[in-house]
Amino acid sequence: MFWINIKRVIKAGFVSFWRNGFVSLASVLVMAVTLFVIGSVIFLLATLDASLSDLKSKVDVNVYLTTTAAEQEILALQASLRSLPEVESVEYLSRSQALENFKKRHENDAPILEALEEVPDNPLSAVLNIVAKDPGQYEAIAHFLKSDDALSKDQQVIVRKVNYDDNKTAITVLSKIINSAQKLGLAATIVLVIISIMIVFNTIRLAIYTAREEISVMRLVGASNKYIRWPFMISGTMYGVVAGVLTLAVFYPLTYWLGEATAGFFSGINVYHYYIANFGEFFGIIIGSGVFLGAVSSYLAVRRYLTI
């Protein structure tokens, strides 16, 4: 009997989805809009995230070492910097590499190259380029560099200059902007998702409101609550699946069309490539949200009319 009932409620759900064509169509469209909002939020967060991390990686601090600092000591300092929890990466640029870079940068600038020739020794110092995990953490790193821990073994000062102090204001402002952009993105996501869920819930409630008489008739012929509820939940699930497929299908040409534009925007990602690469996750989230919203909304909406 259990399997017969399962078969019957599934069939009833499908049949009512089909026969209540207009109500189903309206519900599917509203739900598709909701899922579209959810999907767009994912794209938005991904773009925001990519832009922000790009921005973050552009913020760095250079440590200029004294020309007399031995390579061993510099490597030791690099190692101790790396061991700091705030540090993402430390790149070492030796004096000769610095000179080469300098020459390359000024290869069309004869006077400077000539002046360089005049200097007997390599005037450039080695550089440690530090990227922090979070822009707010440069202060701590700069502090570390000024402390005794940054001295060489024989207590010699090998750090000549840290350019953090020059860029302090810019870094602080940027880190604030990044933080608030992340918070704003999260808040916008939550608000949009809540609004969408409420719209779907109310649409399905209206759809089931039109069937309240039917529900009372089903009660009166002695159908159990489960037997009444399940076909509605299956219809609701189908709204979700159909709306989800519709949304995924709309995203394909839309992201294709917007892909180039978004790739050029900030350092943003190409949404089309992002969509294709993460299609599995999109499929799961969109269809999953649709099914969940449809089934739960239907469950709650029918419950109201099952009290007789």
Partner: peptide, 22 residues
């Protein structure tokens, strides 16, 4: 008080399904 989206057959069958008939 018939179920509007069910045929005569289905309306009657529904009452039988509800009482667990084969």
């Amino acid at each position: 008080r018939l179920l509007p989206n069910k045929t005569s057959y289905e309306n009657i069958a529904f009452a039988m399904e509800a009482s667990g008939r084969t």
